[in-house]
């Protein structure tokens, strides 16, 4: 699924631009616990979360997450957005709650990470 599709499905707004709207996202994961994100051997390329601190960006950087969607209309502060931009991690915000955002993406064919231990 490409980023522009995800943006449309979630009725989301980009938090920094310009970005490549044709970026391919194959898998997604949702977590408010960064420890959970870090403990997955194979994570998703899109993270949906309700956390907005800079550790979300750092965590995403460590596990090669390409894009983050903040739910419930949440927005990180300017420094956190700048850090994401510097690291090339795309940021979106949607007014949807976590379950609905995940459900919409899943119904349109986006899958979660496999969970395989490597």
């Amino acid at each position: 699924m490409q980023l522009w599709e995800i943006k449309g499905i979630l009725e989301a707004e980009l938090l920094w631009e310009p970005v490549d709207l044709q970026l391919e996202i194959e898998t997604a994961e949702a977590a408010d616990l960064m420890s959970d994100v870090l403990s997955q051997s194979i994570g998703g390329e899109l993270l949906l979360t309700g956390l907005i601190n800079s550790q979300v960006i750092r965590t995403a950087e460590m596990v090669d997450i390409k894009a983050i969607t903040f739910i419930h209309g949440k927005r990180p502060d300017a420094k956190t957005i700048a850090l994401a931009q510097q690291k090339g991690i795309l940021l979106l915000t949607t007014n949807l709650f976590l379950f609905e955002a995940c459900a919409r993406l899943a119904m349109r064919g986006l899958t979660g990470s496999s969970g395989t231990i490597w």
């Binding site: 408010d32 616990l33 960064m34 420890s35 959970d36 870090l38 403990s39 956390l51 550790q55 965590t59």
Partner: peptide, 15 residues
């Protein structure tokens, strides 16, 4: 509150 402190740090380092 920052998403850490779930008691996964050391086990995750080991892994």
């Amino acid at each position: 509150e920052m998403g850490f402190g779930a008691g996964m740090g050391l086990p995750n380092m080991k892994k």
